[in-house]
Deep mutational scan, measured.
Amino acid sequence: MALNTPQITPTKKITVRAIGEELPRGDYQRCPQCDMLFSLPEINSHQSAYCPRCQAKIRDGRDWSLTRLAAMAFTMLLLMPFAWGEPLLHIWLLGIRIDANVMQGIWQMTKQGDAITGSMVFFCVIGAPLILVTSIAYLWFGNRLGMNLRPVLLMLERLKEWVMLDIYLVGIGVASIKVQDYAHIQAGVGLFSFVALVILTTVTLSHLNVEELWERFYPQRPATRRDEKLRVCLGCHFTGYPDQRGRCPRCHIPLRLRRRHSLQKCWAALLASIVLLLPANLLPISIIYLNGGRQEDTILSGIMSLASSNIAVAGIVFIASILVPFTKVIVMFTLLLSIHFKCQQGLRTRILLLRMVTWIGRWSMLDLFVISLTMSLINRDQILAFTMGPAAFYFGAAVILTILAVEWLDSRLLWDAHESGNARFDD
């Protein structure tokens, strides 16, 4: 018995066209964080690309023209004298008006014999932002004059995390709450300039795509075929072959399989920071003279006294001054041990922890910024005066060393310790 099946006739004509040209192939790229070699397709503007294995951002879609970056830099340069030299806060102490600005706080630190601690604050609040705007201006002028731009481009990517104007702005709020127990506070004209400078700096850093600047100024022929001998440069993120001198053909720094002496430098910085954190938390970090009496505060006791007036601000200072430094030390110690013992479990967790400490590390400088600003506000000789204690130097040095330890660690070593050939990683 035959089955009668109805015929289905399409209502619209289906047209099949042959592909007349070869589909576009992607360029081969190595991930600078996990060293995976993959094919990167062509990316349009405002599109980002991520590593298929570790999800690290390979290409950032946010990109401004150099002219727009230069305009932002010149605007920031105009704001800087007002943000640093004009009063941020006014207080009335014992019937006398006192003005506080950024430069005055750094000068008070240096004047009291601790120039190293003052230079830490100076670099993060004044030096690094000033280098940022002058570097962008150098790129703008240098591109037109045919100057060598490689050193500036190499420095810009590392400079971003040292620009800490946003953290200093939080420190202004913390210092205001600490001082309000002794005097009446009012915002100064410099505060508005400083807030504007923070906003412009944040926007500029978020749109400063150094890798795209490398592509514009020093374009290189990408690798179009897969080759395990391809290496990625950690300076400019170019994937290719080393030249005859073993250097990256684009930025001219040595092109090595792994960062040289990464573990040794990381261990040295980490152990030194552990040693410095002990006096930083045991010795007094601030000293207040009130009517001839002397009151010393460690980091913890200062947080407890701050909690009596504002528990939320005390929580912020606790996280930045105690929780973050010790968390960074514990995480980095764990990561280094996992590399030495070739741990194969929990790779995803370790990668996330490394990215976390990379982002939060700079916030530990908050305590030094609060001390710097408070020193310029309260300084009335023996009637009422505020000065920093010996722990300030140890704390600042420990924070900087932990930042350097994270920067010096080559994250690809975590993958080397893991089993080879993993296309995915999980716990």
Rank of each mutant, 00 (worst) to 15 (best):
D60V: 07
T334W: 13
T75G: 07
L300D: 03
N101T: 05
L282C: 14
V174P: 01
I322L: 12
L130Q: 10
I330R: 01
D227A: 15
S420H: 07
P24G: 06
Q244Y: 10
Y182P: 01
I98A: 02
D60G: 09
N143F: 15
Q344N: 15
V198G: 13
L69N: 04
P32T: 10
P249W: 12
D63K: 15
A392L: 03
L94V: 03
E419Q: 10
R260S: 06
I19D: 05
Q244H: 14
V370S: 01
L414G: 08
P151T: 04
L145D: 01
P41K: 07
W92T: 03
T117E: 10
G315S: 14
H418Y: 11
F238V: 08
T202M: 15
A392W: 02
C54N: 00
T402N: 03
Q180G: 09
C233W: 00
Q344A: 12
G95I: 03
R424Q: 12
P219L: 12
Q382H: 10
S65W: 04
Q345G: 14
G302T: 01
T402V: 08
P390M: 09
L208S: 12
R355M: 13
T202S: 15
I316V: 14
C266E: 04
G113T: 11
H340D: 09
Y394T: 02
R256I: 11
F318Q: 09
A269S: 12
G240E: 10
N4D: 05
K265L: 05
L230D: 14
W267I: 14
L409V: 09
L145Q: 06
L93A: 01
N101G: 05
Y289P: 01
P249C: 12
G421I: 03
F425K: 14
A73F: 02
Q264G: 03
W92A: 02
R144Y: 14
R216L: 11
R424L: 11
I106S: 03
G292F: 13
R53E: 06
I58T: 05
C54I: 00
L165D: 15
S39D: 07
S48K: 14
M332H: 06
I172W: 02
G188C: 09
A49I: 06
E419R: 11
R226M: 13
L270E: 12
L149F: 04
S309K: 01
L401W: 07
Y138N: 02
I299V: 09
L335R: 01
V163Y: 13
K111A: 09
W363E: 00
A49Q: 05
N44A: 07
V174A: 14
A397Y: 04
P284F: 08
P325A: 07
L414F: 12
N44C: 13
V125H: 13
R355A: 14
F122V: 14
T5I: 05
L271G: 11
V210G: 15
A398K: 10
R150H: 04
L414S: 07
F141H: 01
V174K: 00
A115T: 11
H184G: 08
S411H: 08
A417C: 08
L132T: 06
R158P: 13
I177S: 05
K265Q: 10
L205I: 10
V203R: 08
V313R: 00
Q33T: 10
A183M: 02
T334V: 13
E212K: 15
Y218W: 11
G235P: 08
V189A: 11
I371C: 01
S206K: 15
I58G: 03
V163K: 03
A268H: 03
I199H: 04
A312R: 15
Q55I: 05
S309F: 13
T224W: 13
N281D: 06
R258P: 07
L337R: 13
P129A: 12
L23F: 06
E42V: 06
T374N: 06
F238Q: 11
G85W: 03
E157C: 14
G190P: 02
